[in-house]
Structures are given as structure tokens and as C-alpha cells.
Simulated scan of single mutants.
Amino acid sequence: MSGEDEKNSSSTQTPTANTSTYVPGRVGIVGLGLMGGSFAKAFAKGGREVYAWNRTHATVELAMVETIQGELTPDVVPTCELIILCGYPEVCVQWLEDMQDLISPRAIAIDTAGIKRSICDKCFAIAADKPWTFVGCHPMAGTQYSGFGHARANMFHNAPMVVVPPPMDDFARLEVLERLKNLLAPCEFGSFTLATADFHDRQIAYTSQLAHVVSNAYVKSPAAQAHKGFSAGSYKDLTRVARLNAPMWTELFLDNADYLSAEIGTLVTNLLAYKQAIDERDSAQLCTLLEEGDRLKKEAERR
């Protein structure tokens, strides 16, 4: 997720059914935080037309200076071939529900949230009988900072993109995925990995969410307040993601509570084994634990 976008609230306008044709390559972005802003800048650099909406209108005005063509209003939504939802998970779902009848036939809508089950279950249902397609997505890129001011055009350069396609036959899926890759070309993703929402959330609980929990908890040691002069790369690496958008990560953690709790439980069990070996001054057991971790890390890197 990285996702650090501002929490948005969608339009309350009741749209009418749309039968218009989109402008090829035009992009609509909901939320101009770190993720949405980086998408906007990447597309603008690639020569695409970009329209965006953000809860704080001043951010839209700032983006209009050199990044976007204008605001993503209800009358602009039907003209977009690609719509990217970069808000909080609940905001993504609400916006799509509100605007479902405005989206142009054959357009593609994606999200960027760090969890997929709670997003995809609802958004696939919204799009099920529509002439456009929703695809769950998670760009594996980001920083510990948030907001449009930290967005950059090269955020996604060589980064992996996880894609959760909707239920459809193989030929339709292939066509949608090829179109999506072409539409996202200006972002320069390094790879596209297909996954189910369940597998994504299980893996992300370990690779991303657990890392944020550990980093955030690690800096609660009183020793952290006196680290200057005593810390180097290890401290910097382990504390980088301790800085986070607490409301956003709270929602992401609770949406994936089952898998994240299981990962925390596994970590606690492993830490207690190290603690016991250290408390008992058991050098043989401690060495075995350390060698095991080293071996498993090397095995994971070879996969």
C-alpha cells in the first residue's frame, strides 16, 4: 500500500444511466494523495489526459497547475477509459456505487488499496451486470510519507502490480488484462502478478502489514529516544515504516484482521523462542534459531 491518500467522501448526486463512449486513454483519479498523485503525474508525463477528484479542493487546484486537466466531475466520469480509485477502501466502494451508472461501457475501473477481499467482493458485485469492468489492483510501491506533495511520476517504475481479475472466462480476462497493461504503460510497472483476493490478503498480511506493526511497535522502546549516535542501517531499515497514516492503516489492518492476527501470533511465538534461549543462556539453541532464520531467508530469496 502502500496507500497514504486522504480520506474522501464521494458525491451524493444520483446519476443516470450512461451510454456514451469514453475518450481513449483518458484517466479519472479519485483521491490525490501519494498514490493518486503519483498516478496522475505518471500519466501526465506520458501525455495522457487526467482528471481528478479530491476531498480537499485546494489539492485539485494545485494539481491543475501542471499535472491534471481538470476536476473529475460527474459529467467527466463517462469520458474516462480508466478510472483509478485511490481513497480509503470504504470510499472506493462508495464512489463506485454512486457513479456506477455514469461509467462508460468497456471502461475499466481499478482500485489501489492494500487489501483486496473487502474491496473486490463489493466492487465485483457492483460491476457484475454493468458494461464496464472492475479489476482489483495493488501497486507494490510507496513511501512512509503521504500527500500529493510527496507524489512523484516515477513511483511505480519497475514496481510489481498485483492484479485480482473479476470472475469471467479466460478469453475475456485476457482481453481485459492486456487493455489494462496498455492503459497503465506510462506508469512503467515492472511486473503484473495475478492473484485471488484471498491469496493477496494472506501474503500482504506478512509482507506489508506485519512489517508496519513491528516497526511501529519497535520504536516504542524507551531506547528509541536516545538512539542518535548509536544507530545505523539496521535501525533505519527497521523503523522506516513506523511513520504511517494511522486512520488508513487501522482500516486496512481491521479489514484483514484474520490473516494479520495469525502472522502476529506466529511472530510472537518465534520471538518467545529467542527470548527463552537468551534467558537460559542456551548458546546452542540460540545459534540454531539464528541459523534457521538465515537459511529460510536465503531459501525465500531463491524462489
Rank of each mutant, 00 (worst) to 15 (best):
Met1Cys: 05
Glu291Ile: 01
Ala273Val: 00
Lys130Glu: 03
Gly31His: 08
Gly37Met: 05
Met168Ile: 14
Arg302Trp: 07
Asp75Met: 07
Val50Ser: 13
Phe39Tyr: 15
Leu290Met: 09
Met140Glu: 12
Asn256Ala: 05
Ala44Tyr: 09
Leu184Val: 09
Asp198Arg: 12
Asp75His: 10
Leu290Gly: 03
Phe156Met: 02
Glu61Met: 15
Ala242Asp: 00
Leu272Ser: 10
Leu289Val: 01
Ala141Thr: 10
Pro89His: 02
Tyr274Glu: 04
Glu97His: 04
Lys297Ile: 03
Ser10Val: 09
Lys7Glu: 12
Ala223Asp: 09
Pro247Ile: 01
Val163Gln: 11
Ala284Gly: 05
Val65Phe: 12
Pro24Asp: 08
Cys187Lys: 02
Met248Val: 02
Asp237Val: 00
Tyr218Leu: 09
Glu263Asp: 02
Gly33Glu: 04
Phe39Asn: 13
Glu49Pro: 06
Cys287Tyr: 14
Thr196Gly: 07
Ser191Glu: 11
Pro131Ser: 02
Leu32Thr: 08
Pro24Ser: 08
Glu188Arg: 13
Ile103Lys: 09
Leu210Asn: 01
Val65Glu: 15
Thr67Arg: 12
Thr143Glu: 05
Ile119Asp: 10
Pro89Asn: 02
Gln144Trp: 06
Glu66Gln: 14
Lys181Thr: 12
Ile68Asn: 04
Asp169Met: 06
Lys298Arg: 15
Ala52Lys: 11
Asp258Ser: 10
Trp95Phe: 15
Pro222Gln: 07
Phe199Met: 09
Ser234Asp: 00
Glu178Arg: 14
Val176His: 13
Ala125Cys: 03
Gly37Trp: 04
Thr16Leu: 09
Arg202Phe: 09
Gly142Lys: 05
Val214His: 01
Pro74Met: 07
Asn18Glu: 11
Asp170Ile: 08
Thr239Arg: 01
Ser146Gln: 01
Met140Lys: 12
Tyr218His: 00
Cys137Lys: 11
Ala211Met: 03
Gln94Lys: 15
Arg281Glu: 13
Asp169Phe: 10
Cys287Asn: 14
Thr56His: 15
Asn8Asp: 11
His57Trp: 07
